Computed example of a mutant assay.
Amino acid sequence: MDPLTHALLGATAAQAALGPRLGRQAWLVGGLGGVLPDLDILIRSSADPLLAIEYHRHFTHALAFIPVGGIIAASPWLLRQRHRPDWRALLVAGTLGYASHGVLDACTNYGTHLLWPFSPLRVAWHWITTIGPLLTLILLFGLVFAVRRRSRSPALLALLLGLGYVSLAAWQRERALDMQAQIAAARGHPVTRAEMFPTVGNPVLWRSVYQSGETLYTDRLRLLGAEMTLWKEGSHVDLLLEKDLSPQARADQRVRRDFARFSYFSAGWTAHAASDPTVIGDARYSLRTDAFEPIWGVRFHPGTAVPTEWVDFTTRNRVPISELWREISGTASGYRSMPSPGNSR
């Protein structure tokens, strides 16, 4: 999630729990705790371009690291003599803020090492995107009113509304997965695996990705009432596995290692970019809806000193608000009713 929402969630949680005890200090400690886990972005190396993605949302986001993070978050206050009588409350505020971070990130589709060091699983519930304006505004208003009125109630209400929003998104995702299965069945596709990804800032529009054989199929799904549930056919692309790399790439041990690392980061959703086959992209995300254009990926240069190049197109990732609204409102072209079994047309 974006840093602002993390800070607001941590601050709101701390204010709701400890506002009466710590006053205006509670939200400050919680807010700091809410952003601290993302200091892992400082872990990077020019000699290893994949180090940054390997350790982002890693141990600093783990449940096991929360006690350490809580102490770090509270430290600026604990170092001051006048705050030490409240050391228990400060630790709780910092811990609540820190704990909120990894759990919120797990609600997105990026993947978070919540269970480190006990499991290598990247937990991703795919309910919300990393930018959620509605959730951010709910937390902002709740926190502002709670601090100004020196009351817990607005903060508690904001947390409940935020939980309701995320719960709605989780329910919508399950509905979208049912739609996806219906579309695949209408096409006659046996599904090897499937996933559903939310679009920016709403629980209505979803990006469907499933694998059938060694092909990845993507579609757009719009979920409102039963009569307003629509879908738009997307594109398909070949899944890329290690065996599909060039002979030169497979001969380079470092390339094979880095392909495995990138594939793990991408949860196995890897494919060549449509416009540049030298780029192997993360197929969970695309700059376009009609073809696969990755937001990020890798390019390999076997036999060189640094054989892996990180390719980042995030600066091109502009959300077309008007088009997104047309899709959400049901006025965008190309959307149609759900297919009957055996007929995706």
Rank of each mutant, 00 (worst) to 15 (best):
L4D: 01
L9D: 05
L9F: 11
A14V: 02
R24N: 14
R24F: 03
A47L: 01
P49F: 00
H56I: 08
R57Q: 07
R57P: 00
H58P: 00
A62R: 09
A62T: 02
A64W: 13
I72F: 15
S75E: 04
W77E: 11
W87F: 11
R88K: 15
R88Q: 14
V92W: 14
A93N: 08
Y98R: 10
Y98I: 10
Y98M: 09
S100D: 07
V103P: 01
A124D: 09
I128F: 06
T130V: 15
I131H: 11
G142D: 12
F145N: 09
F145G: 01
V147K: 11
R149W: 07
R152D: 04
S153A: 15
L156A: 13
L157P: 04
L157C: 10
S167H: 12
L168D: 12
R175C: 04
A186K: 08
A186L: 08
N202I: 01
S208E: 02
S208A: 06
V209K: 14
Y210H: 11
Q211M: 12
Y217N: 13
G225I: 03
E227Q: 14
L230E: 14
G234Q: 01
H236F: 02
D238Q: 13
L245V: 12
R250H: 03
Q253H: 10
Q253D: 12
R254D: 15
V255C: 02
A267H: 14
W269M: 09
A274T: 04
S275K: 15
V279K: 08
I280K: 14
A283M: 07
A283Q: 08
S286Y: 08
G303A: 14
A305H: 12
T308I: 06
E309F: 01
F313K: 13
T315Q: 14
R316K: 15
E327M: 14
S329P: 02
T331W: 05
P339V: 07
